[in-house]
Amino acid sequence: MSYQEKKNIVSLISTVLIFGFYCLYVYERFKDTILEGEALFRFWGAVILILIPITIVAKIIIEIIFIIINRIATREVEPSFADELDKLIGLKAMRTSYFVFILGFLLAMGALVLQMPPATMFIILFLSGFVSEVAGIVSQLYLYRKGV
């Protein structure tokens, strides 16, 4: 298995774990809170905004740990640059990721049109962010395995 494939698998696991633990934390902390009106919008705004720095920091830490463990276990040096294949795969994966997110965004807007509660719209939007990231990583993994 190539370095890029291993890195993508680690990235996939870390994305799922970070999102899972964050959702669990938010649910446990606010499950008894009843939010309405402006407070609801503020709550979801905060939930989405706080997840971004947490994900960035956690992913950096996990990647550093992965590099160290991989270096010790395989003595493989990580590529110091992204070449044309990496860039092409990155772009294709990003396209998949955007497509999935736009689909989620449209679903979220559809929920509003169908007069569902605003919380439903935010949940769909929040989940589509997660699913789009997973789709991007899985797509990268697939392209590294099957070719471009």
């Binding site: 370095y3 044309e84 294949l85 070719g147």
Partner: peptide, 22 residues
């Protein structure tokens, strides 16, 4: 040629057609 080993592997296996420059 200024690429990663993974790219050479992909070219040899026919999984990737390199750019004209490469």
């Amino acid at each position: 040629v200024g690429v990663t080993r993974q790219t050479i592997v992909a070219i040899e296996k026919g999984k990737y057609s390199p750019s004209l420059e490469l």
